[in-house]
């Protein structure tokens, strides 16, 4: 398992170093030195907790008690979550709905906004971009809190507006049928501008000649969009889709500061369920097992992402 040991063994035909080492080797050393701090840090701060988390996921442990009281339970935490637990899989599904709906919203609206901003004569690009970027830069806790106030069925400003337009008041976050939609609206709001900027950069990267050639051939706006713009943007769209899904599956701040999972568990997302399992229900092992199931899903998505990146480069 030691990569260094292996390397030394297969390099016998290099000049014997003696006290002096070759330039190539010295460079190799420098390269190694450059990444050493990060690597060590990574091992301690990321991989360590990961191993610890995995170890704990095979135990039953209340985080209030000392760790010596952790009891070995093998794979039973995983088994329980995937079979008996009535709240974990629904929470995973909620996160899935949220992630997918947000991706669709972000890609469709984001792309539309990017197309608008890409209109040649549109002035004030800087202004539009700053405005669009703001929600993504704002603390999700503040946003969630703000939106919870706006969505409130009584003193929420949204119902004031819809009431003014003649619609009945909606209990956005107090009705299980609409609460997840409200959370999806918040999430889409938070990121749509950001993705619009991503798409805009993608659009700006499409060579002008393509469009010129197409318009000479008599293609109309829609045809240009379908046959030229969209194929050119496919890698960016694919990338955004995967990134947004990965982050969407981990939604937490936004939910805990607005609906806290309710009503009737309609907005209970997987990370929220994880948080509550560890700290409220006092079952750190089970929470860690949840984290690893989620981790496996995210890893699979990342592999897809890496594939896409590779395709993009070639």
């Amino acid at each position: 398992m030691n990569p260094l040991a292996g390397r030394e063994a297969v390099a016998p035909n290099q000049p014997r170093p003696g006290r002096r080492i070759s330039i190539a080797q010295r460079r190799e050393r420098w390269g190694f030195l450059f990444v050493l701090p990060v690597t060590l840090f990574l091992l301690i701060v990321i991989l360590g907790p990961l191993l610890f988390g995995f170890w704990i996921s095979l135990h039953s442990w209340n985080p209030l008690a000392s760790l010596t009281e952790a009891k070995w339970v093998g794979w039973r935490n995983y088994e329980f979550l995937l079979t008996l637990d009535k709240r974990f899989l629904p929470s995973l599904i909620n996160s899935g709905y949220y992630a997918v709906a947000r991706v669709i919203g972000n890609v469709v609206i984001g792309l539309a906004l990017a197309m608008l901003m890409n209109y040649p004569k549109l002035k004030g690009l800087r202004f539009w971009r700053v405005a669009l970027f703001l929600p993504m830069a704002t603390s999700p806790v503040v946003l969630g809190h703000m939106w919870a106030n706006m969505f409130h069925k009584d003193f929420g400003i949204l119902n004031t507006i819809t009431g003014f337009l003649g619609f009945p008041a909606v209990g956005w976050m107090t009705n299980p049928d609409t609460a997840l939609i409200a959370v999806i609206i918040m999430g889409t709001y938070q990121f749509v501008g950001y993705y619009a900027i991503v798409f805009l950069a993608g659009l700006q990267g499409i060579p002008e000649e393509y469009a010129e050639a197409a318009s000479i051939d008599g293609a109309n706006g829609w045809q240009q969009f379908w046959y030229i713009t969209l194929p050119q943007l496919t890698p960016v769209i694919a990338f955004v889709t995967v990134m947004s899904t990965i982050s969407g599956l981990q939604v937490f701040d936004l939910v805990i500061s607005s609906t806290d999972g309710g009503p009737a568990d309609a907005t209970n997302t997987v990370v929220l369920q994880m948080y509550k399992t560890v700290f409220v229900n006092g079952r750190a092992g089970q929470g860690a097992a949840m984290a690893f199931i989620l981790f496996a899903i995210l890893m699979a998505l990342s592999v897809i992402q890496l594939r896409l990146l590779r395709e993009q480069r070639s």
């Binding site: 990961l50 990965i246 990342s302």
Partner: peptide, 28 residues
């Protein structure tokens, strides 16, 4: 730079981006 283990470490680094941050709190 090229050095032994570079790609492995880099891959680990990439992989670590998908770890749910939440898992770190107690060990940290």
């Amino acid at each position: 730079y090229r050095f032994p283990g570079r790609d492995l470490v880099f891959l680990l680094l990439l992989g670590s981006m998908t770890i749910p941050l939440f898992i770190n709190i107690i060990p940290w």
